[in-house]
Design a protein around this nucleic acid. Structure first.
Length: 465
RNA sequence: GGCGGUAUAGCCAAGUGGUAAGGCACGGGUCUGCAAAACCCUUAUCACCGGUUCGAGUCCGGUUACCGCCUCCA
């Protein structure tokens, strides 16, 4: 069974078939870098990083490109407010983006192109559209002739005439038609700008992705992804631009993630109800945030609040604890034992189940529940009188491997410092003397230091609280 | 007005025709010097109405509520 993914164009799950055997080209719309990202902005990088990881896990070589919009109206406004230059603001928030998203376990893409580094390319793209009569210059701006593109609306399933009735489209005397959208914007006094055949100006928003996706991934790409709110008009416009230019399909699969809500309302910078990743990470484990995001199917909305994040953390702890329990027990394990074959089969079965869930439109919610099942099996195994290193390894390796597909790391326990070591030894001595008052006092003391002790049949073990 | 999404136990969340996964929290129990961890047990007929079917949370029709896109937006 191949990987199935839900394609916004067809509104169906489709078997995935890349253009080139074993290779995947993937473009994910990146952020406009005028501020720190909020957790809504963090969903696409997390979700599509996971998609990428799974594709790689399944043997594909993934070319993952994600852009930065480092010049636009909001950025100009932000720079003005801060009394800084646009490039400086962009640079700072690109760094912040990598820091946040890196903490969340997202791998770097193969390329992260920026608009300002591709101005020439964008100008050439626009010139070609003008040559083909799909675009026209008007008062220093350049617009795309939307109605000329057959099939406009095929992604968002909007009919071009209904869009007009929507009527909230800005009318502008410089446009031939109110549906036309801007490819090149003439600069206002004092704005950052570049020279072009149409005078000083800068690219419109949509054109950058068409130009950069083509540069890095070719005329037709396998997967184009982004937030649901980008489907219209952004992605629709990208299709119009790219397909008008090349005459080829722009992307074969369109993936869109759902929103994150606060109190059941969409989180957005313009609504002002956003929570910055930067702020959450001051007090929360980034892995927990990632785990939380993946606990819901990527196309469904997620409601965010502190309690829900903490509940997710408790869930992740269950898996982590199982992993640590296994590691601890390994030292006390000897040779093969009686039912090992059965246990190994169970592990293999869970691995298969995990892959099956991920193959089915990246059902991370179910994949996580497989991780819980695997943890539960592991805990049951640990109740056996004898354990074998081989089975323990099968459990730990598989748990680590599958969690890794989700970008969740199973960390190895670090060493304790001498002071703590000494306390543990002291407590053991007290326990032997049945001096439980002292033993408990030391245990409390360690708890203050965030070290939780557990007495097991295989000896004392500790973990961070 | 057009397009789309959601409604499942206290909370979160899977599940697209066969008699409701999983997690968190709660309660009871086992284990433990006491804990912790773990294990066991307990908890829902799936917004509402009607239909199709031997059988529906799962398909069809309708109703209600909430949310989103159609404007910068992940």
């Amino acid at each position: 069974m191949s990987i199935q993914m839900y394609n916004t164009v067809t509104r169906k799950k489709e078997p995935f078939k890349p253009l080139e055997e074993g290779k995947v080209s993937m473009y994910v719309c990146g952020p406009t870098v005028y501020n720190y990202i909020h957790i809504g902005n963090a969903r696409p990088p997390i979700v599509f990083d996971t998609v990428r990881r799974h594709l790689e896990y399944r043997g594909y070589d993934v070319n993952y490109v994600s852009n930065f919009t480092d010049v636009d109206d909001k950025l100009i406004r932000a720079a003005n407010e801060l009394g800084e230059e646009v490039p400086a603001v962009a640079e700072r928030f690109i760094d912040a983006y990598f820091e946040d998203v890196g903490a969340l376990g997202c791998a770097r893409g193969t390329a992260h192109p920026r608009v300002t580094e591709n101005i020439d390319l964008i100008i050439e793209f626009i010139e070609s559209l003008i040559e083909k009569d799909f675009a026209y210059e008007s008062g220093g701006d350049v617009y795309y002739r939307t109605r000329k593109f057959n099939g406009y609306g095929k992604l968002s399933h909007q009919s071009i005439d209904e869009l007009r009735i929507g009527a909230r489209i800005e009318s502008d005397e410089r446009k031939e038609d109110e549906l036309d959208f801007v490819l090149w914007k003439a600069a206002k006094e004092g704005e950052i700008s570049w020279e072009s055949p149409w005078g000083e100006g800068r690219p419109g928003w949509h054109i950058e992705c068409s130009a950069m996706a083509r540069k890095y991934l070719g005329d037709t790409i396998d997967i184009h992804a982004g937030g649901q709110d980008l489907a219209f008009p952004h992605h629709e416009n990208e299709i119009a631009q790219s397909e008008a230019l090349t005459g080829k399909p722009f992307a074969n699969y369109w993936l869109h993630n759902g929103y994150i809500n606060i109190d059941n309302e969409k989180m957005s910078k313009s609504l002002g109800n956003f929570v910055l990743v930067h702020d959450i990470l001051k007090e929360a484990d980034p892995q927990v945030l990632r785990f939380f995001m993946l606990s819901v199917h990527y196309r469904h909305p997620i409601n965010y609040n502190r309690e829900l994040l903490e509940a997710a953390g408790a869930g992740l702890d269950r898996i982590r604890t199982a992993y640590e329990n296994l590691k601890h027990r390994k030292e006390a394990s000897s040779g093969l034992t009686e039912n090992d074959a059965e246990w190994l089969e169970k592990v293999a079965a869970q691995k298969e189940a995990f892959i099956k869930e991920m193959d089915d439109d990246f059902n991370t919610a179910n994949a996580i529940s497989v991780l819980f099942d695997l943890s539960g099996e592991a805990n049951l195994y640990l109740r056996e009188k004898n354990t074998s290193p081989e089975v323990i390894d099968a459990f730990t390796d598989t748990l680590k491997e599958l969690a890794g597909v989700l970008g969740i790391e199973m960390k190895e326990q670090e060493m304790l410092d001498e002071e703590i070591d000494e306390l543990i030894v002291k407590r053991e001595a007290a326990r032997k003397d049945r001096d439980f008052a002292t033993a408990d006092a030391i245990r409390d003391q360690l708890k203050e230091m965030n070290i939780i002790l557990e007495d097991t049949k295989q000896g004392i073990r500790w973990r961070r609280g």
